[in-house]
């Protein structure tokens, strides 16, 4: 039985897992943005704040995923919940770092003159700083998405959803040709998703960046 014959026999299962995988990554990514961008906004103005935010996010990246699940299972049990939280934490670093860089790259003359004509902090942030930093923020989201698509496979280890389940069942039948086919199916699904996510975020960047902020 060749790989393609095998794929033809279980493609519905593969498509189902791919869909789950996409939803899982989207949830983790969305939470990473919802936590990461405000974190960047709160910390980008001071050196100490920036260091604290970026270093914490980097530290999380160094925690092995199995160890992280070990920490999360007592709190959240098995299944989707610990998988989403883990992805959120892993996705923070590119989002936080890019948001800080983007906000700091706004020309000081622009923010000074905005304050000089009487713009308050909130308005300055919402109408000047974030729109100008937006392309850089989205570039961080793009990196984060690619990263999470790979990491999400591990969530099968805690009974989470996604393509990791194909890879995991391949591992459990190691030694048979199906083990390789299952792993290949998992990888193929992730590659397809990576291309789709990349294109989607590129499109989002074009649609949501005001023409003057485009580099």
């Amino acid at each position: 039985m060749s790989f393609w014959e095998y794929l033809a026999s279980n493609y519905l299962e593969v498509i189902g897992y791919t869909f789950e995988h996409a939803v899982l990554v989207l949830q983790g990514l969305a939470l990473a943005v919802l936590v990461g961008v405000p974190l960047a906004v709160l910390t980008y103005r001071t050196g100490l704040g920036r260091a604290a935010a970026v270093n914490s996010a980097s530290l999380i990246m160094t925690i092995p995923s199995y160890a992280l699940f070990g920490l999360l299972i007592p709190l959240l049990g098995l299944g989707t919940a610990p998988a989403i939280v883990a992805l959120t934490l892993y996705g923070l670093l590119p989002v936080v770092r890019n948001a800080i860089v983007g906000l700091r790259e706004v020309d000081p003359a622009v923010t000074e003159s905005a304050r000089g004509v009487g713009m308050d902090r909130r308005r300055l942030l919402l109408s000047i700083e974030l729109p100008l930093a937006w392309p850089v923020v989205l570039a961080g989201v793009r990196v984060s998405a690619q990263l999470l698509l790979g990491i999400a496979a591990i969530s099968a280890a805690v009974n989470g959803p996604g393509l990791g389940n194909l890879i995991l069942s391949g591992l459990s039948s190691a030694g048979t040709p199906f083990a390789v086919y299952l792993a290949l199916e998992g990888i193929l699904g992730i590659i397809v998703l990576a291309v789709v996510f990349d294109a989607a975020i590129a499109l989002l960047t074009r649609l949501t960046t005001t023409r003057g902020a485009r580099a």
Binding site: A109, V110, E112, S113, G116, V117, G118, L132, G212
Partner: peptide, 20 residues
């Protein structure tokens, strides 16, 4: 902020909002 809205402000680098 209210004070600055009563006072015009122009600088050498113009500081125009590039996206507007």
């Amino acid at each position: 902020d209210a004070l600055r809205r009563r006072i015009g402000y122009a600088i050498q680098q113009t500081g125009l909002f590039p996206h507007r």
